[in-house]
């Protein structure tokens, strides 16, 4: 089974990729052999408040069991509690996603502490988006960098009982983050190397890695080729392909420390 933890619905204004609806997304993932996906709304990246995009996501995914809605919360807005409550009440929601760099706040801000407490209250998991676009190829006027490893480290140390999934880290960033903290999981959407398994071994266990495609911006079929890297054992492949993601999205805080 292949479980994509980094998948989106909606339009990206700087891409030629046509917007898909949920049925089209399902067919698209079928062609790449992806069985299920946690799906976030791209609209929430640029809109001033994420809930309209989240509501559209909930409606689009309703009744589609292969998709888990992964709505976005902006904790820098005054209504973050209302956002969180509405997301927690929506069917199928197990986690919420943050876009710190696109929403112009740092993970070190104090207001994130009550936000993390509220996540626990709602029994929701956390996904942090380190980056969506490769900074080298982004639209020339969109000068947004990835979330700094130092900020992620500070956040993880300030919230040691929280184990977020961080999407969009490069191999170097993931290893750097793992050298200072243990309470995070990472997707491999930005991690690629013919020696990927060897690079990560001993630094970031396969029990902390998940498969992610960045669909629809990146070819899901191409991303699936990462699991062909030599040296991944069959058990490691299974963990990365689906086991870890199923655990993350199935029960509330199953891996809380």
């Amino acid at each position: 089974m292949l479980f994509d933890v980094n998948c989106y619905l909606g339009a990206w204004p700087f891409s030629l990729v046509p917007e898909m609806n949920a049925e089209q997304l399902a067919r698209h993932l079928d062609r790449a052999g992806v069985d299920c996906a946690a799906v976030s709304p791209l609209g929430a990246v640029f809109q001033p408040e994420p809930m309209p995009a989240n509501r559209a996501l909930f409606a689009a995914l309703r009744g589609k069991r292969r998709f888990i809605p992964l709505p976005v919360v902006n904790p820098a807005l005054a209504n973050w509690k209302e956002q969180l409550e509405e997301c927690a009440a929506a069917p199928g929601v197990r986690a919420v996603r943050l876009y710190p760099n696109y929403h112009d706040y740092r993970l070190t801000r104090r207001t994130l502490l009550p936000f993390v407490d509220a996540l626990e209250h709602h029994r929701l998991r956390l996904v942090i988006t380190a980056r969506i676009e490769d900074e080298r190829h982004r639209y020339f006027a969109l000068r947004i960098k990835g979330v700094p490893v130092a900020d992620l480290t500070a956040f993880l140390k300030a919230n040691p009982r929280t184990v977020p999934l961080v999407t969009g880290l490069s191999v170097t960033e993931a290893i750097q983050l793992a050298s200072g903290t243990e309470n995070f999981l990472a997707d491999i959407s930005y991690q690629e190397n013919i020696e990927l398994a060897a690079m990560l071994r001993g630094k970031l266990s396969s029990s902390r890695l998940m498969f992610g495609t960045l669909t629809p911006l990146v070819s899901a079929a191409a991303q699936s080729g990462k699991l062909c890297a030599p040296d991944f054992s069959a058990a490691e492949r299974r963990r990365i392909a689906s086991t870890n993601a199923v655990r993350f999205f199935s029960g509330p805080h199953a891996d809380r420390r």
């Binding site: 062609r31 790449a32 690629e192 190397n193 013919i194 020696e195 990927l196 070819s219 899901a220 079929a221 191409a222 991303q223 699936s224 080729g225 990462k226 699991l227 062909c228 890297a229």
Partner: peptide, 19 residues
Amino acid sequence: GSDLPGRSIGVSIQRVLGS
């Protein structure tokens, strides 16, 4: 082309085959 080792052959092949 894959540009290995920084990139992987599996990915570059699937990019074409999955297109």
